[in-house]
């Protein structure tokens, strides 16, 4: 128990503590599909910028890969988000990339900061296609886990073939409950599915869906870590 006289020092000690971590991330995540036509691209971040401070209209740039053309839209900001709203609804069945640029610091103006993790390009699609975005070795008995680009039905998961070495497993996937991971509001939907196959760090995992396959080496991760990675999460 602290002596009574030391209680008066607590505010001073509190001033020496590091500030609480701030959370930043992007929505949709890199590789997400089935994005709704009216979806607003969002960078969630805490900032000290005043609400009435005009945004940098070039800070988010969007490219339509299917049409090979830039996408016009409005960049807006408040103290929690930086958003891009397209002037017209997202074209259906198109693939896009969006790039978040570092802020241009003015010499006589507010400090403009963005966490480095949210900067750079990411992709999304309005196609309803399902594909694996990330594969890893689950912490639960070394299962093979895959993040898919949208919410998948049970039938779609049953059609997925997972290959490790010479062993191929089809069906029997179990989904990771989203309640177990940080899942921000506004996410258009995803699926994390795992298969009970023996897997070691560095093994090559092949995920086959229809006539397409995705191959990659896996490491042990948690579902939460993977989602933070694809959402360019910090904090």
């Amino acid at each position: 128990m602290l002596p009574y006289r030391m209680l008066s020092l607590l505010p001073l000690l509190a001033g020496c503590l590091p500030p609480p971590e701030e959370t930043s991330y992007r929505l949709p995540f890199d590789g997400q599909s089935a994005i709704p036509a009216d979806y607003v691209l969002t960078v969630v971040r805490q900032t000290t910028l005043p609400d009435d401070y005009p945004p940098d209209t070039d800070q988010i740039q969007v490219w339509d890969w299917t049409a090979s053309a830039p996408v016009a839209g409005e960049v807006a900001t408040d103290d929690q988000t930086l958003t891009f709203t397209p002037d017209a609804p997202w074209a259906s069945e198109h693939d896009f990339s969006w790039t978040v640029r570092p802020p241009v610091q003015l010499a006589r103006g507010p400090v403009l900061e963005l966490p480095p993790t949210v900067l750079g390009p990411a992709g999304f699609s309005t196609r309803n296609a399902l594909w694996p975005v990330w594969g890893w070795r689950g912490a639960n008995a070394g299962d093979a886990c895959v993040l898919f680009s949208r919410e998948a039905t049970a039938d779609e998961l049953d059609a997925v073939a997972v290959t490790v070495g010479d062993a191929t497993v089809t069906g029997g996937a179990y989904a990771v409950a989203m309640a177990d991971v940080e899942h921000p509001p506004g996410d258009p939907g995803l699926t994390i599915a795992c298969w009970r196959v023996p897997l070691a760090d560095g093994d090559t995992l092949t995920v086959t869906l229809g006539d397409q396959s995705w191959v990659g080496a896996v490491q042990t991760q948690s579902a939460g870590d993977v989602l933070r990675e694809v959402r360019q999460w910090s904090g």
């Binding site: 005009p54 802020p103 006589r108």
Partner: peptide, 9 residues
């Protein structure tokens, strides 16, 4: 009158 990132205010 001052510069903002994409405008003059």
């Amino acid at each position: 009158a001052y510069r903002a990132p994409s405008s003059h205010e």
